[in-house]
Write a protein that binds this DNA or RNA. Sequence first.
DNA 1: CATGAATGAGCGTTCATTCAT
DNA 2: TATGAATGAACGCTCATTCAT
Lengths: 200, 200, 200, 200
Amino acid sequence: MKVENKHTKIIAAATKVFAKKGFFTARISDIAKEAKVADGTIYLYFNNKYDILLSVFEEEVGKIVESTEKLLRLEDDPRRQLEIFCSQHLHSMKKNRYLAEVLQIELRQPYKLIKEYRDTTFSKYTGIIAEIIRNGQRLGLFRTELHPDLAKRCIFGALDELSRVWNASLETNYTVEEITNQVLAIFLIGIEVTRSSEEG
Amino acid sequence: MKVENKHTKIIAAATKVFAKKGFFTARISDIAKEAKVADGTIYLYFNNKYDILLSVFEEEVGKIVESTEKLLRLEDDPRRQLEIFCSQHLHSMKKNRYLAEVLQIELRQPYKLIKEYRDTTFSKYTGIIAEIIRNGQRLGLFRTELHPDLAKRCIFGALDELSRVWNASLETNYTVEEITNQVLAIFLIGIEVTRSSEEG
Amino acid sequence: MKVENKHTKIIAAATKVFAKKGFFTARISDIAKEAKVADGTIYLYFNNKYDILLSVFEEEVGKIVESTEKLLRLEDDPRRQLEIFCSQHLHSMKKNRYLAEVLQIELRQPYKLIKEYRDTTFSKYTGIIAEIIRNGQRLGLFRTELHPDLAKRCIFGALDELSRVWNASLETNYTVEEITNQVLAIFLIGIEVTRSSEEG
Amino acid sequence: MKVENKHTKIIAAATKVFAKKGFFTARISDIAKEAKVADGTIYLYFNNKYDILLSVFEEEVGKIVESTEKLLRLEDDPRRQLEIFCSQHLHSMKKNRYLAEVLQIELRQPYKLIKEYRDTTFSKYTGIIAEIIRNGQRLGLFRTELHPDLAKRCIFGALDELSRVWNASLETNYTVEEITNQVLAIFLIGIEVTRSSEEG
DNA sequence: CATGAATGAGCGTTCATTCAT
DNA sequence: TATGAATGAACGCTCATTCAT
C-alpha cells in the first residue's frame, strides 16, 4: 500500500512537472521535491527518467482508454459513439490538465521509446475513432468516400488542438459541453451521409 | 552571398537535425556537422541554440505564411479560400517534412520564447482560418452557430495531425490532393449552411 | 562535520591551485583533483568559480583579521600595536604562503566582485593601520604632518611586497622576526616624533 | 613608419584594455577594436596574447627605467637619488595610469614568462633602489643594519600601493608632490642615520 | 601588409544516476 | 525501504589563432 502510494505520488508529481517545464527541462530533483521524496527514492520505482515519462503515458492514458472503451461498449450507434469519444476525451483533458499538456508535448518527441509507445498503445486509442467510422460506414451512416484513417486523424487532431484552449497561458470560458457540441456539429454533419449526397 | 549561404545552410541543417532528434537531444555539433561548418561558426550567425530554433520558426514559417496570404488575396469565396489554405498547408508540410516535424514537436514546448513566438507570429497564421470562417459567416455561407476560434482549432488541429502521415516512421501512399479532398469533404460540409439547416 | 570538512578541503585546495596557477589558468578540475573530490562536488559547496575565490578571501582573510584585532585590543601603545600588526601580517603570510600569493595576485584583479570585496571587507583590514596611526598622532607619538591614509598605504604596501620574499620561486633565509624588525626599524623611526622634530 | 605606428597603436590599445579588463578577460578583439585594426593584424606584430603583454612590459617600462636611470646619473647624493626615484615612479604611474594598473595586476601573475620578465628586466628597476641604499650606507648616510634588499621591497611596495590611489574606482585629490613628500618624510627619516643612532 | 570569417580545442557547469548509510 | 551527498560524463559556448582573399 505504501509502495503503491509512493509510485502514484511520483507519477502525479512527474505529470505536473513535465507539464510545466517539459520533459527535458524538468529535473529529477524537481519531481522528487514535488512528490516529497528524495531523489534516490525515485529510482526505487522507476529505472530512469524516460521510464517515468512512459509510465505516465501507460498508466494515466491507460485509465482514459479503459473508461472510454467501457462506455463505448454500452452504445451501438456510431454517431453516439463518436459523441461519447469526443466528450470523454475533452472531459479527461480538461480534468487532468497536466496530463493533457504532457501528451500534447511529449508524445510527439522523436525518441525511440516514445515512438514505440505512440505506435502501439496510443494508436489503439486513436484507432477507436477509425473503428467507429468504419462501423458507421458499414451501417450506411457515414459517407464511404472518407478514409477512416484520415478521418481519424482529422477528429483526433481537432480534439487535441481544442483541448489546448484550457492550457495555463490561455484564458477561456468554453465549457467541455460547448466544445463537444461544436466539434460534433462540424464532424457529424461533415461525415454523415447527407440528404443531398444520398439524393446525388 | 557567402554569408547568406552559410546562414541558410545552418538553418536547413538545424531543421533536419531538430526534426530527427528533437531540440534538446540535438547537439550543436550535430548541426555543425550536418551544415559542414565548425561548431563555432554557428555562433557567428546565431546567438545560441534557442535562437537557431526560433530562426527556423521565423524564417521557414514566414515563407509559408507569406505565400499563403498572397494566394488568398486572389480569391474572394471563403470556401475556396479554405481550400487554398488547406492545400497550401499540406503541400508545405509535405514538401518540407523536416520543418513539419519541428513545428509539430517544438512549437508546443512550454518555454517562454517559444510560447511567445507561438502566441504572436504563429497565431497570426492560424488566425487566417478564423478570419476565413468569419467571412463565410458574414456572407451566409458558413453556419453562424460555429465559433470561429473553435472551428479554427478544429481545422488546424486536423491539418496538423494529417500532415503527420508523411513522417519518416510511417509509410503512406496518400497524396496531398487526396488528403486535401478528404479534409475539405469533411469540413466544408461540416461548416457549410446545409439545405436542411437552411430549411430547418 | 563531513560537510565542514569538504568545504574546508575545497577552500584549501583552491587556495593552493590559485596560488600556483592563478585564478584564470586554474581549472575547476585542478581544484577538484587537489581536493580529491569530483568536479561536480565543488558545485555543492560553491556557486561558481568566482564564488570559490571570494570564499577564499572572506574565510581565510577573515581569520587573520579576527586574530589580529583580538591581539591589538590587548595593547594600548600605538607603537606596539603597529609592531603587532606587522608581525602578525608577516607571520600569517609566511604560514599560509598560498593564501599570500592569492591575495597578492587576485585581490588586484579589476573585476566587480573582487573590487567590491577589496573596497569593503579587505579595506577594513588595512584600515586598522590608519587607525593606529591616527591614535599615535593623537597621543603625540607619531608626526602629525603624515596623512594616515597615505602612511597606511606605505606600510601595507611594504608588508605586502616584503611577504613576497617567501614565494616559491625565491630562495630566502629571512625569518619573520628579521623582516618585522627591519620594517619597524624603518617605519617606527620614519613616523615617530623624533627628538629633532620635537625640538624643531 | 607605418609599421612602427601600428605596433605602437596596438601596444597602447592593449595597455588600456588590459588595465580595464585584466589580461585574461581582455579579448584580442577588444584590443583590435581599440587599436582600430583587424584581429588578424595583431598577429602580424605579435606572436600571441602573452607576447603583447610582455611587450607592454618591456617597452613601456623600458622607457621609464631609461629616463629614471638618466636622471639618477646626474645626481650623487643617495638621499636625492631616492627622492628622484620616488618622484619619477609616482609621476610615471600617474601619467600613464593604464600602464600602472597593468603592472600592478599582471606583473604578479604566476606565469612562467611573466615571472621571467619580473625576475630579470623588472628586478633591475627595483634593484636601483637597493643600489641607492647600498651607496647611502657606504657613504654613512643610511643605517647599516638595514638590509638593502628588504628596504628596497619596503620602498617599492609603498610606492606601488601609493600609486593605486589614482585608480579609477578611487577619488583622490593627492598630487604627486604631496605623495612624494609623504613617502620621503617617512623613508628618509626611517632609513637615515639619525642623531640618536649616531650618538647611540 | 591587412582583413575578418572560420576554426576547434578547451572549460565551466549541469544533472541523471549511484551507493554508503 | 529511504535518503541525499557524491559522482563524472556530456555539452553549450568562447575566443585565440589561422588563412584565403
